[in-house]
């Protein structure tokens, strides 16, 4: 098992897609897998980056941003999806676009068992409330998956979550 992940380029690919599709609001609760993307967005003066106390705040915030004519993206780890479910009813009923970028935990070589209940149900609960779910598993497909999801959400006014597989983030060796 390789435990050392090579330098990641896919977080920068996501940032590039954000710029390309005109995303100007970022809302996030940090995840280690999003650290580089958060840094890139924070360093960009054209982006309004908001650190949240809980992920559901971002669902409401980006609805407000869209009401005011701005595109946004919501960054979180899979456990944060569980914090969003009722708030997604605002998005469903009013047909707001919503681009969620979710780094997965609890699905591949996870060392922390407390991540499993939410990680194993992330896609199911999103689909249950009506969010379209797409996945990226390999570094070289992240750019296209995020780009396609962004185009679809903002042209359909329907929420889409991109789940970034835990395998992308890497394997943490817990053998000793």
């Amino acid at each position: 098992m390789t435990t050392e992940a090579p330098a990641r380029t896919w977080p920068r690919d996501i940032y590039d897609v954000f710029k390309q599709v005109g995303i100007e609001q970022i809302a996030y609760v940090p995840d280690a897998g999003h650290a580089q993307l958060i840094r890139d967005c924070e360093a960009d003066n054209a982006m309004n980056v908001v650190s949240l106390t809980t992920e559901e705040e971002g669902v409401a915030m980006l609805a407000g941003g869209w009401l005011g004519g701005k595109r946004g993206a919501l960054l979180m780890q899979s456990s944060g999806v569980g914090n969003c479910i009722n708030m997604l009813s605002v998005v469903m009923e009013s047909r707001f676009p919503l681009l969620m970028i979710v780094t997965m935990r609890g699905e591949w070589g996870e060392f922390n068992p407390w991540q499993l209940p939410m990680g194993q149900s992330t896609g199911k609960v999103l689909e249950d409330i009506g969010v379209y779910v797409q996945r990226a598993e390999r570094p070289d497909e992240v750019r296209d998956v995020v780009h396609a999801a962004a185009q679809m959400t903002f042209s359909s006014n329907r929420p889409i979550a991109v789940l970034l597989g835990q395998r992308l983030i890497g394997f943490k060796d817990w053998s000793k």
Binding site: V50, A60, M61, A63, G64, G65, L67, G68, K70
Partner: peptide, 10 residues
């Protein structure tokens, strides 16, 4: 929070 997003956008 919806108000925050709107205020930042406008």
């Amino acid at each position: 929070m919806l108000g925050l997003g709107l205020a930042l956008a406008q």
